[in-house]
C-alpha cells in the first residue's frame, strides 16, 4: 500500500488494518507527489494511469480465472482450487474470452511497463483477486466478466476530466475503445446463450442518454471492484 507507506509508521499500521475492511478509494491510488512541482502535474496524471492499471490488472486476472472455471479448472493466485466446467474452446463464451484475455493482459503490461519505465516502482503493485469463481455457473461467469468490462469501459470515460495534460489521452482512449468493443460483443454472446427471448441492448439506445456511453466516477468504480480485491 504505497499510500499507507507515505504516512507515519503508526498511521500506516492503522491504515493497513482498516484497509482490509474498507473499499479501496481513489485517494489510495499511488500518486508520486514529487512530480507535482509548480506548473507541473505529472504526479497527478500518473495517479490516473495507476487507477487504469488497477482495473486492467483486475480484469486480466478475472479473464484468467474465468477461463479456468469454464474449461479445465486449476488454481488461482490466492491458492483456491477452481473446478473446471469442461466447456470446449469453440463455445462462443470460451472462444471470445480466449480472444480478449491476451488483449487485457497487454493493456495491463503496457500501463505497468510504461509507468515503471518512466520511474521504476512508480506503478501500482498488483493485487490478488478472489472472485468466488469456483462456484459460479457458466452464465454467472459471463455476467461477471461482462460487469468488469462494462465497469472498465465507463471508468475510463469517468476519469477523463481528472487528466491535467494531453499526453495520455490517445493511449487511454485507444484502450477504452477496445473495452467498449469487448463489452458489446460479450453482451451479444450473453444474449445468444442465455437471453435470446429478451436480449439486452449491446450499446446505449437512442432513448438511453442519447445513445452515449455512461460514465462512472473512480470512487464508485473502486467500491464496486473492492470486494474482489484481496488486500495484502
Amino acid at each position: 500500500m504505497t499510500a499507507a507507506l507515505t504516512m507515519g509508521a503508526g498511521a500506516a499500521a492503522a491504515a493497513l488494518s482498516l484497509a482490509k475492511a474498507e473499499a479501496l478509494t481513489y485517494k489510495e491510488i499511488p500518486e508520486p507527489g514529487y512530480l507535482n512541482l509548480p506548473g507541473l502535474s505529472g504526479g497527478h496524471d500518473i495517479k490516473v494511469l495507476n487507477y487504469a492499471l488497477t482495473l486492467e490488472d483486475l480484469e486480466s486476472d478475472l479473464y484468467y480465472q474465468a477461463l479456468l472455471r469454464l474449461t479445465v479448472g486449476g488454481v488461482n493466485s490466492v491458492g483456491k482450487t477452481i473446478p473446471g466446467l469442461g466447456l470446449g474452446d469453440d463455445e462462443p463464451d470460451v472462444y471470445y474470452i480466449n480472444q480478449i484475455a491476451p488483449v487485457e493482459a497487454e493493456h495491463r503490461d503496457f500501463l505497468r511497463g510504461s509507468l515503471n519505465g518512466l520511474i521504476n516502482g512508480i506503478a501500482q503493485k498488483p493485487y490478488r483477486y478472489d472472485f468466488g469463481i469456483e462456484t459460479k455457473s457458466r452464465a454467472d461467469v459471463l455476467a461477471l466478466v461482462l460487469l468488469a468490462e462494462t465497469t472498465g469501459t465507463q471508468a475510463y470515460l469517468g476519469a477523463v476530466p481528472l487528466l491535467k495534460t494531453r499526453a495520455f489521452i490517445t493511449a487511454a482512449a485507444a484502450i477504452q475503445g477496445t473495452e467498449a468493443r469487448h463489452t458489446a460483443v460479450l453482451t451479444a454472446i450473453q444474449n445468444e446463450l442465455f437471453n435470446s427471448s429478451s436480449p439486452v441492448p449491446v450499446a446505449p439506445l437512442a432513448t438511453d442518454n442519447g445513445g452515449r456511453e455512461g460514465t462512472q466516477d473512480p470512487d464508485a468504480v473502486l467500491a464496486s471492484v473492492s470486494p474482489f480485491i484481496v488486500k495484502p
Partner: peptide, 15 residues
C-alpha cells in the same frame, strides 16, 4: 462527451 460517443461507435463496430 465526445469519448462517450466514440465508445458507442466502437461497440457498434464490434458487434
Amino acid at each position: 462527451t465526445a469519448a462517450t460517443i466514440y465508445s458507442t461507435e466502437a461497440r457498434h463496430a464490434a458487434v
